[in-house]
Nucleic acid binder design. Structure first.
Lengths: 220, 220
DNA sequence: GTCTATAATCAGATAGAC
DNA sequence: GTCTATCTGATTATAGAC
């Protein structure tokens, strides 16, 4: 078609669009994480991205649409961060691996975690049902797996939902409430050493607390 | 003094003031918890309290002052909820009691918990240093106690800060993120039974995970 | 595709009648 | 002490020149 001819100007235009969209999305994620949807202003996002206010509207139409786009991008990143690793089959290893993955995400995507935390804190006024669909299937399938492990005597009998909520809450805490953690620890930023301590402590308590130890039914 | 004479009109006036202040404070706590400081509107607070917009300003001067007053009242309630109970001296009992107290507060003061969660999530833009002063002394003294228990071999050696953060995060989760929990559990409101399960699960994992069991150095 | 100017909206705060 | 009316400021969103 005539509109799809790749003239130099169109190629350059496409690049500018992508580049500007990316700049705006990065700035928007920081702004929404820091101030929440209500506190965020398009003016600050534009300034921080280095574009004019009107251009943010040109690319994303409205603040709400921009916010939802940021959320979608976060969900994509989230899904990429938790690949199915079928090489593990021991409860101990699987849970240990999951805690590590969650902490890794919290460490490297604190803004993303905060945006979701804010959204849930307010009752998901903007995401609505989309929130549930993100984790619902995953959650209920893992609950089933935990139940089967408990029935097989591989781990202590506990409410599987609350075991998972505990992993969520304790790992996300270091992203969502980093301000309080850092103030309490008197540090500016998390160090490698901090995250090793966090990982060691959470892993120890949760695994031992669930009655799990390494290779508990290792065949001699 | 002449101004303190208790004429009927002044007595009634004082009562109205207290009554209206209370109505506004109750409405404000709900509004700030649901929408955050930026999303909250004085109009909604006034309507919900049954007074005119201007009266909220008359009593509290500004939205920010009202917010800070709500925070102060929450801190008071918080302090009343955690009386020093010197009757306990076993690590197992003390931590178990603390988890129960935290969960009790989460259950009965979800709005208060959410307001603090929102404030910490955004880096305490309005509370500032006042936040730290609330828990700082408590935290560092308890860290010292945990350390002494670990050195005495009464519990596993772990980073005491992260043990406490874990108790905070896992108990507060049920207030701050109740929307997600309730959606996942497909319930409208927490029941007595829900909280018993939560309490049992958290208590089991944390205590066992820290290597604590009841009366571990019972005499005889 | 970009930017300035402007319209429209909303909410906090205040003045002043009652 | 209460309430209506108004002022003010901020911010989203859009129109239209470049």
């Amino acid at each position: 078609m005539s509109t799809s001819s790749d003239t130099p100007s169109q190629v350059r235009t496409g690049r500018i669009r992508r580049s500007n969209e990316t700049l705006i999305l990065i700035a928007a994620e920081q702004e929404f994480a820091r101030r929440g949807f209500d506190g965020a202003s398009i003016g600050r996002i534009a300034r921080s991205a280095g574009v004019a206010r009107a251009n943010v509207h040109y690319y994303f139409k409205s603040r709400e649409k921009l916010y939802l786009r940021v959320l979608d991008d976060i969900v994509d990143r989230w899904n990429q961060s938790f690949p199915e690793n079928s090489s593990l089959d021991e409860p101990y290893d699987i849970i240990k691996h999951y805690i590590a993955a969650k902490l890794h995400f919290s460490r490297h995507n604190p803004a993303a975690s905060k945006i979701f935390a804010g959204e849930i804190l307010r009752g998901a006024p903007l995401m609505g049902d989309r929130l549930e669909s993100i984790y619902s299937n995953w959650l209920h399938s893992k609950v089933g797996i935990l139940k089967s492990w408990m029935q097989a005597g591989k781990m202590d009998s506990l409410d599987p939902y609350h075991v998972i909520f505990m992993i969520w809450s304790s790992t996300q805490h270091y992203a969502d409430f980093d301000f309080q953690v850092k103030t309490a620890l008197k540090i500016q930023e998390y160090s490698e050493d901090d995250f090793e301590k966090i990982s060691a402590t959470l892993t120890h308590i949760i695994l031992k607390g669930c009655g799990l130890s390494p290779q508990q039914d290792a065949p001699l």
